[in-house]
Design a protein around this nucleic acid. Sequence first.
DNA 1: AGTCGTTGTGCGAAATTTGCATAGCGATGT
DNA 2: ACATCGCTATGCAAATTTCGCACAACGACT
Lengths: 116, 116
Amino acid sequence: MKELRIRSKIWLEVDGQSFLGDGRYRLLSAVQHNGSINAAARDLGMSYRKVWAQLQAMEKSAPFPILERRVGGKGGGASQLTDEIMVLMEQFQELRNQVNKEADRCFAASFQESKN
Amino acid sequence: MKELRIRSKIWLEVDGQSFLGDGRYRLLSAVQHNGSINAAARDLGMSYRKVWAQLQAMEKSAPFPILERRVGGKGGGASQLTDEIMVLMEQFQELRNQVNKEADRCFAASFQESKN
DNA sequence: AGTCGTTGTGCGAAATTTGCATAGCGATGT
DNA sequence: ACATCGCTATGCAAATTTCGCACAACGACT
């Protein structure tokens, strides 16, 4: 058996449909870091269209606002995350790390219990 | 905050590419239970083409044979799982349950730490 | 030899994804 | 007062991917 590894992921659902997972986490981080959806898209090497669509889908099922957008004005506009989503992102990141760690631990127990 | 739930999944990778996850697990189970790829596809409500393609992709990256196929003959043919993959599926299922349980536990700790 | 239901596959249709192109916006500077 | 600038938002056609129908090959059993 060569190079067998475990991977894990978690995501949060609202009313049974995906709300916050790894991909959206990256998107939101990029928006937070770059100050606008447009800059985030460039930073991620994705089209604005695509990033916008994903954020749109996210907000549609969100139980609270995700982004504060400003159209026009200085710099043409801007977007930033709401406090609520930033808090949730923090919790999400911690959960992900914990679950990931547990996955690695269980995998090691199952597959390397007999050390050579 | 309404109806926020955690979901988790795990999968096994060989040389960095997905090898066994939830979807393929279901496919393999259906093959095992139905005795042929064709019957499995019907059972799952999927087209034979699609099931076949996924199993094909799986075997391409597999470190050992997955299916024993028989073309022609009694009943037109048949397929069954190898012992190796059945052992791995067993381990996979256990891992999935353990990780899932841990995810639920961590989630509860993070989001319901203050019981009302 | 004929039958039967399976594995395996070519290929066009259908669905989805993608990004270009463009409209509308408004705080700021002139 | 109004021109500017870069951002948000979106229509739409092209590109890509997914999908499944249709059919060939196969071989144990009758």
